[in-house]
Design a protein around this nucleic acid. Structure first.
Lengths: 204, 204
DNA sequence: ACCTGAACACCGTTCAAGT
DNA sequence: ACCTGAACACCGTTCAAGT
């Protein structure tokens, strides 16, 4: 039972977690370094022992965003038979939508482009992002092999699928679709209909 | 030659313009009410005579974002014959991409969802946004009538097209696509290939 | 190595006061 | 009606100092 020095020994992760909690409770505009520090029970200058600046913390929060999306997709498709890649694709899209709806400010900050030019400075962010892209790519490849998706270059089809799903959920949480669009069908149903505009066989 | 009282008589628009300039020159993180006021040559409290708060100014900047997108699309397709709606659709998509690339921070703030729950409070924003949506809708309808796009419910196809294009350019300016994706083809070419995943006839 | 407290520049917002 | 200047609470960041 060794005593941890300072805080609980893993202040860095505690700060990331505190930041994500603030995002879900109070939203992006309330996310400040000082509030994150207070929430983690340390002084306002303590975060600077673990992060270069606020952007550095946001980069970590964004990486964790990709990690949570990855975990969510994986746990949603892991029990689906390889015989039905179109069901995997459908469930992955729905999981993506679900994350954006339930953790919308975390989703938003993950894709806020706040990293901008210095993206090379955040290798962990790149890694988490790429892992998600690869997951989608594998799903798309399975679908191509089973004749669900056209056999064009894999990267091209992956970008098409991701762009469609990402664009839809982004415009959705930004409330760009007028309300009467969802009288007849749910958001989930509409997303699947959109996917079916690209697939060769209908996903039900 | 009548003298205008205070400033130049249209401080409100001057503030919006100043904000957009800051966005293009220094980016979103540099956009502050105080800096906007200074740039327009007034005191830091002057904006409160024209905007309720910072969010209210951002709502106006976002409305202007939609207006500029609208003007850009219109001027790009106005000389194209009605016989080629697929060319109109293509040029509109390219214009959308162009705006996002050249004015990326203005584009980002327009879709930042900063309006959030109180969107009803910003009728001008809704109006500008809806005008863009309607423009796209008309293009999609023309394409459906000429057999370029499947004849499903109009709103459904419009959402599909807008989601695909919006998702692609959003992920692009957020640098989510790894660099080697664009070795063989340009961003423009890739966008058209994505569109062709949805169209019934190939757009060249 | 990790954290604190004081310090500084900057920000959003309010309000009494001026024209 | 429109703008100013002072005021206040809050923020990001730095730095000397403490353990």
């Amino acid at each position: 039972m060794r005593e941890k020095k300072y805080h609980h020994g893993d202040l860095k992760n505690a700060l990331i977690k505190a930041g994500i909690e603030i995002l879900s409770q109070e939203g992006i505009s309330a996310l400040s370094l000082r509030k994150v520090a207070t929430k983690a029970g340390v002084s306002h200058a303590a975060p600077y022992s673990h992060f270069k600046d606020k952007q550095d913390l946001i980069a970590s929060i964004s990486s964790e965003g990709f990690n949570r999306i990855y975990e969510k997709l994986i746990s949603r498709i892991k029990d689906i038979s390889d015989d039905y890649p179109e069901i995997k694709l459908k469930e992955a899209a729905l999981a993506y939508l679900e994350f954006a709806l339930t953790d919308s400010d975390h989703f938003r900050i993950t894709f806020s482009g706040i990293i901008e030019k210095d993206k090379e400075k955040y290798p962990e962010y790149i890694k988490s992002s790429l892992r998600c892209f690869t997951l989608v790519k594998n799903l798309v490849e399975e679908c191509q092999q089973k004749g669900i998706l056209e056999k064009c270059p894999l990267d091209e089809m992956t970008v098409a699928i991701w762009s469609l799903v990402h664009g839809f959920v982004s415009l959705l949480i930004d409330r760009e679709f007028s309300h009467n669009l969802f009288e007849k069908e749910t958001q989930q149903e509409l997303l699947i209909k959109l996917l079916n505009k690209i697939t060769l066989k209908e996903i039900k």
